[in-house]
Design a binder for these strands. Structure first.
Lengths: 343, 343
DNA sequence: ACAGTAACCGAAAGCGCTTACGAAAGCGCT
DNA sequence: AGCGCTTTCGTAAGCGCTTTCGGTTACTGT
C-alpha cells in the first residue's frame, strides 16, 4: 500500500462506465435503486478494469466490518490449530477474513493483540488462548473488551468462562470423570496425575472430574500422586521422570492433555516400559495425532473444530445481554494405551 | 462495528487534552513536531480514556497498512500449520496483523481469497498453498497480483515458483535424491512410490530427485511401481492398498509426504506387516508428529517454520524488479521406519 | 393534458484519520 | 527594533467509499 502509487478507485470505474460515483457504489454493493442494466454495465466495467474495492474506505464509510479476530497462544499447538480450523471454515463460508494473533502465552502481548484487533474494528473477537493469571492484565483486557462491546463488537471465549463474554466450554469435569472411571474400571488403583498448572480453570475442572470418580470408588483423591508441570510435551516428560522416581508402584498415568501424555509415552519408551502392559497412559483433548501414535492414545475427545465454529457462530448471532454458555460434549476414546494393570 | 454506537474518536481525545486533532494525531503516531510535554499529556489522556485508533481511518488517510495476508489450503494440515506459525511469529514481532485465508484447495476460492486480501490492502501476500492447475485461474490470479504489486503490494510464494513472485523453495529434488539414496544404501531395490498428483511442481521435483538417485544406481525409474493419489492420509492408504495388491515383492514404500506415509503405516499395521522388518517406509516434510509415530518416521526435514518466516521477511524487504528465489535446505532424518530389506 | 407517483440517478456530506500548509511565537543576530 | 530562522501548533484538504437527499424522468390514472 503506497500512497504515491494509487490503486484503481471507484471514481475511475464510474467514469469509465459513464455514471456517478454513487451509482457505481450502489451497483457494486447491494444493487438497490439502480436499474439492472446499469448495474450490470458497471459490474462489467469494474471486472474488466480489475477493480477491487478498498475495505478500509468501505468500512469507514459504511460501518460493518467483514473481519473477525482470533487469539491463540501458538498456532502450532494442535489444540489451537483445530480451533483455528473451525473458525476459518466458518469465516470462509460467511465471507469474513480472519485475523489470527499469537499471544505467545504472554499476558502483555495478549493485551496488545486484543487492542490491535479492536483497532482493526473486527466484528468479533474469539479468545481461544487466554492466559490471564494476574488480576491487572485481566482487568485491563476486560475494560478494553467492555468498551469494544459497547460499540457493537462481539466477544466469545473458548475453554474458559471469564471476561464476562459468551463462552464455549468443553465438559472438562465430565471428561475427567470418564477417563478416571475408565482406569478404575480396568482395575487401576495407583494412578498418577500429570497435571498442568492448577490455576488454569481447565486443569481445575478436569481434576474435579477425576476427584468425583476416584472418591466414588472409595479412594481419597489426595492419595494420588500429582505433579504439576507446564501444559506441554516437555512438561509431560519432566512429570513422568518425577513420578517414576518417586512412585514406582503406579500402574497408570493420567495426563491432563495429550501433549503431556505424548511426553510421558516418550519417557516410558526410553525406559523400555511397555505401554499398556506395564503402564497405562491416558491423555485429554484427542488431538489429530492421538490415533496415530503407537500405541494409539486412549484419551478424551474434545470437538475442537466444532468449538471454533460454535464460538464464531455464537458471536455472530444476535448478542444477548447476559453471557451465554455452550457446553461441548466430551467423550472417552479408548485406544491401545490402556489395559488392565500388570498382575 | 456499528455505525450508531460510536467509538471514541481522535477528536474526543483532542478535546479532552485541549489540543487540536492534528496535534493529537501527531502525539499518538510519530511524535515529531510536537513538544514532548504536550505529546505526553495527549498520550496520558488517550490511555485514560481507553482510546484505540481506527485502523481503517488510519490507513485510508496515511497509506501504509499494518497487516499481511497468508493463503493456505487448510490450517489443520501440519505443513501449513508450521508455515503459519513462522509467519505469525514474524508478524507479531513486526507489529503486523496476519489475515489467514483458507482456499480449501479450490482454485475459485483461492482467487476470491486473493481478491479479499487485496481489498484489505494488506502490505504483503504470502501464498503458501497454491493449487492453480488450470491456466484460466492461474492467469486471473497473476493479473490481480500484478496490479496489486503495481501499487506497492508485495507477494511471496512458498513451495512453488510461479506467479512471477519472490519464492521460498525447499530443495525438493535434493530431498528426493537423499531419501531414495538412503533406501538404496540399505539395499532396497523394489521401492514403491506413493505419490501426490504429478501436476504439482512439488511432486514433480521430488520425483526428479528420486529418479536421479535410482538411475545412478542403475535402476530404470520407470520400473518402480508408482501410484498417484491425493496428497493426504487417505490418499496414502489407498495407494498402499493398491501397491500391496499389485506388487507383493516391494520391500520399501517411499511416500512423497508425511501425511501419505502415515496412511501407509496404518495400512501396514492393519495387515500386521512389521515396519521396518518386513517393509521400510519413508515420508517427506518431517511434520511435527513424525518423530512421535511408532515406528518413528524416517523422512526429509523441511524447515517449514523457517520458510514461513523467510517468506514474510523477504516480502517485507525492499522489492526487487525480478523475482528472487531462496532455497530452503532439506535434510534426511533417519528414524525407525527404515531398515535393511528382509532377507 | 396534467397532477401524482414511482423509479432512477447525481451532488454532496460525511466516516476518522494523516499531513501539507500557514500562522504564531520564540530565538539569536545585526 | 527589525530581520530571518526554527519550533510548535491549528486549519483544512483530502484518503475512497456509503448514503441521504433532492432532482429528473417516465409512467400511471383521470
Amino acid at each position: 500500500m503506497d500512497r504515491d502509487r494509487p490503486t484503481l478507485r471507484l471514481q475511475d470505474v464510474a467514469e469509465a462506465a459513464g455514471v456517478s460515483i454513487a451509482t457505481a457504489s450502489r451497483s457494486l454493493s447491494r444493487s438497490t435503486g439502480v436499474s439492472e442494466e446499469v448495474a450490470e454495465r458497471v459490474r462489467d466495467v469494474a471486472r474488466q478494469m480489475g477493480y477491487i474495492a478498498n475495505v478500509h474506505a468501505r468500512s469507514l464509510a459504511g460501518g460493518a466490518s467483514r473481519s473477525v479476530g482470533l487469539l491463540v497462544h501458538e498456532i502450532g499447538d494442535p489444540y489451537f490449530t483445530e480451533i483455528a480450523s473451525g473458525v476459518l471454515h466458518v469465516g470462509a463460508k460467511e465471507g469474513l477474513t480472519v485475523q489470527i494473533c499469537h499471544t505467545g502465552r504472554d499476558p502483555q502481548q495478549e493485551l496488545e493483540q486484543i487492542r490491535t484487533l479492536i483497532a482493526n474494528r473486527v466484528g468479533a473477537i474469539i479468545v481461544a488462548g487466554s492466559g490471564f493469571v494476574d488480576p491487572a492484565h485481566q482487568a485491563a483486557a476486560k475494560a478494553d473488551l467492555a468498551s469494544y462491546r459497547r460499540f457493537g463488537g462481539r466477544v466469545a471465549v473458548i475453554g474458559r468462562h471469564h471476561l464476562s463474554a459468551d463462552a464455549v466450554l468443553p465438559d472438562n469435569r465430565g471428561g475427567g470423570r470418564a477417563v478416571a472411571q475408565h482406569l478404575l474400571d480396568l482395575g487401576h488403583r495407583r494412578i498418577a496425575l500429570v497435571s498442568g498448572m492448577r490455576s488454569l480453570t481447565t486443569v481445575a475442572d478436569r481434576l474435579a472430574g477425576i476427584e468425583d470418580a476416584v472418591t466414588a470408588a472409595g479412594i481419597p483423591f489426595a492419595d494420588l500422586p500429582l505433579v504439576e508441570a507446564p501444559f506441554t510435551r516437555l512438561g509431560g516428560k519432566q512429570a513422568a521422570e518425577e513420578i517414576l522416581a518417586a512412585h514406582p508402584d503406579v500402574t497408570a498415568v493420567l495426563a491432563l492433555n495429550d501433549d503431556m501424555a505424548i511426553g510421558v509415552l516418550s519417557v516410558l519408551r526410553d525406559r523400555g516400559m511397555a505401554v499398556p502392559e506395564r503402564m497405562s497412559v491416558t491423555g485429554f483433548d484427542d488431538v489429530a495425532v492421538a490415533g496415530d501414535l503407537a500405541p494409539s492414545l486412549t484419551t478424551v475427545h474434545l470437538p475442537m473444530v466444532d468449538m471454533g465454529e460454535q464460538a464464531l457462530l455464537m458471536a455472530l448471532k444476535e448478542p444477548s445481554a447476559r453471557p451465554r454458555r455452550r457446553t461441548a460434549e466430551c467423550h472417552l476414546v479408548v485406544r491401545d494405551s490402556t489395559a488392565v494393570p500388570p498382575a
